[in-house]
Design a protein around this nucleic acid. Sequence first.
DNA 1: CGCCGTCCACCGTTCACACGT
DNA 2: TACGTGTGAACGGTGGACGGC
Lengths: 409, 409
Amino acid sequence: MDRNNSYFALNLPNQMVMPYYGQDAGNICVVCGDFANGIKYGVFACNGCKGFFRRSVRDNRKYRCRFAADCIVIKDQRNACRACRLQKCLNAGMNPKAVQVERDKQLREIIEAENSGDESPGEGLSDSPIRVQKEVKEMETQTEQEEPPKQQIAILPPLESLDPDFNIPCTLFEREREIWSFEDDYLAYSSSADQKVEVPFEFVYSNPNMVSRRFKMTMAKYRLPCTSWFVHAFYSMHSGRKGLCMTDGTYHPYIGDENYYKREHFMTLFFEELEKIFYPMQNMMVEWKMDVFEYLLFKTIAALQEECCMSEKGRKIVKQAREKYVRSLYKYIRQKVKDPLKAGERLSHFLLLLNPLTALRMKTNELIGGDHQSQTQERRSPIEEEFDALMKDVHRSGVCEPEYIDIIN
Amino acid sequence: MDRNNSYFALNLPNQMVMPYYGQDAGNICVVCGDFANGIKYGVFACNGCKGFFRRSVRDNRKYRCRFAADCIVIKDQRNACRACRLQKCLNAGMNPKAVQVERDKQLREIIEAENSGDESPGEGLSDSPIRVQKEVKEMETQTEQEEPPKQQIAILPPLESLDPDFNIPCTLFEREREIWSFEDDYLAYSSSADQKVEVPFEFVYSNPNMVSRRFKMTMAKYRLPCTSWFVHAFYSMHSGRKGLCMTDGTYHPYIGDENYYKREHFMTLFFEELEKIFYPMQNMMVEWKMDVFEYLLFKTIAALQEECCMSEKGRKIVKQAREKYVRSLYKYIRQKVKDPLKAGERLSHFLLLLNPLTALRMKTNELIGGDHQSQTQERRSPIEEEFDALMKDVHRSGVCEPEYIDIIN
DNA sequence: CGCCGTCCACCGTTCACACGT
DNA sequence: TACGTGTGAACGGTGGACGGC
Ligand SMILES: [Zn+2]
Ligand SMILES: [Zn+2]
Ligand SMILES: [Zn+2]
Ligand SMILES: [Zn+2]
């Protein structure tokens, strides 16, 4: 329809834009003062600012000023600071909505493409699907050796040598293993629920040596509820058993498993509402053959959730970190399956797991906090009580009465 | 306008609230869905498609699709693939013969006569960059006139004429609009909570004429809790208001909005736990400039969730349908942003929305079912009670005590 | 008034070139 | 030096406005 309704934004705000008056005011770029050949995106602007604005908006670029965010934007130095240039474009009233999506190629190029070798675009991908993977080293040109000689954890051999992006998942994984291993230490960090946590995730996870072990425990434990069902699913998937596998090697058999008749009654009660969400999630992981890397990266993504208790700043950190790991996961998948189309599809299937995972987390919380406990109170064995206590503590603390999370600086 | 004292009138973009409802039944471009100011070259078409068709035919342009020759042609991205746009023009019945030769030929002839003075008037225009059409017949071998005059559906004009993949989102969207519009009919389908539902989603949504209106209401209502917060976020994003916008045009102002001091107390109470999840979700949508199509497709994806109450078969259907729409969304995004890398990134950011969305849904359910109600019982006004009842019914029925969902065959 | 046409401001792409690494 | 990325002058294509019949 008419595009005019997106052009009305001529409201030049308060600022010092428009230092020029008179009849030739229309020929002056309101951003940089260069010659303006007409109206661009709602205001008089030069060709340079037009192109810059289009590229910035279309690619959704985020710049950051290296100075005080008050750089002077004039013709001769408009390329000095992109952040301030874009900010001035917006302040001057340039309308991001007037930037359109990418168009078709020009006709000239279509003809040339036709003359050159037939490529059968869009359907191509004729290269052999089977290819020896060998470009892992490509990532290893990293020279950042500032870290002390890492002590290799046996469980995660290949991960450490990779992209630094993968450090945090490794650390997270390691912390979690500790937690599940040292059960006798349980009470020690269980009492930390009323402790204030004021360190950013990034900092904690990437500088594990600078934080106390107990503190790391707290951090990892705090994030556990977000991912615990996912962890169970992954373990179960690798166990080959049809059931819900715990990290200690025991499992709760699902229908179809040979030990199905041995199910614990209280587990059945507890799990029966959840397993209809749990098993489809696990099936998805099996179907797409999620590997250890994808597991780790996805788990980090799932762990990085904004919670109500976080400050504005904390949420922003968590969001940025999460997006970073989504990119990492995408990057990894692109390496693994070369076809970019299939890579996107694979990524999307994994991200869909977030949904049942969140549902499980919240439903668990609901079950534990709700009346499930009181209903079965009569016949509770010590094991059941222990299980309930464990689940309650682990699942509850991160969701309902969480610690206060913020960052220092 | 003055619903009650708590909300403020708000103008939403008309395509969202009342998308071409009734009055402009025929004024829809059959190619791209834009507003059609009459018949062009034989069919209802917009100015853009008119000009595009004229230029293409007159210059005898040969385009080639860079993709799979099945690009989506809609207003916002009709310029993305000219091959598919022209093909759709022809398929829609635009008549190349109706394109005339250039007028004002004499004007250019004068200019050319000044330069050379040699010109054959009959077929001329040889060296002008604009060539005359001459092999139109080649294009006209289209004999597919087998279709009867299509009865255009007035409510969702651009969408119906599209890819069949998009039918279900459209239908879903339409149903939902009905639900929100016919408030007086509310009780009629509110009582259907104990009704058995035994028809697959696919069937219902793709054959809307074969199911009763009331049944469709039930289906749509059943799916509402999965997406309602997302719908609010999308409306709010387009309203330009800083607040939670309802579909009736009212809104609950957030901090920073000019009407913030007028917030309703009970809404504040209800929303304060949720808004910390809600606004980040909305910010993500704003940041990535989610468009209407992405909105529809994502909403369908979000609506297609396995619930505990579904049978094995029902869950499988839901899963397959969801994956289908994820692929559709991916396809759409790939067309919109050509770079496959960026497409994957965009898709992943949208899928990340599933997480806060699920969290909101379950938290809402928790709040409504919990003690929030009893706490404020003393000072409840009729409006509050009505609101509570509505929220309780809408959010609750789909999650906690849902109808039985299965498929027939 | 309806449906052709053209017109031209503005949006897009293109690609030599500057610049940082 | 080669390379990748961003820039902006030049040009192509788009579509709302308007004129003719
Ligand atoms: Zn400028
Ligand atoms: Zn600056
Ligand atoms: Zn059109
Ligand atoms: Zn195409």
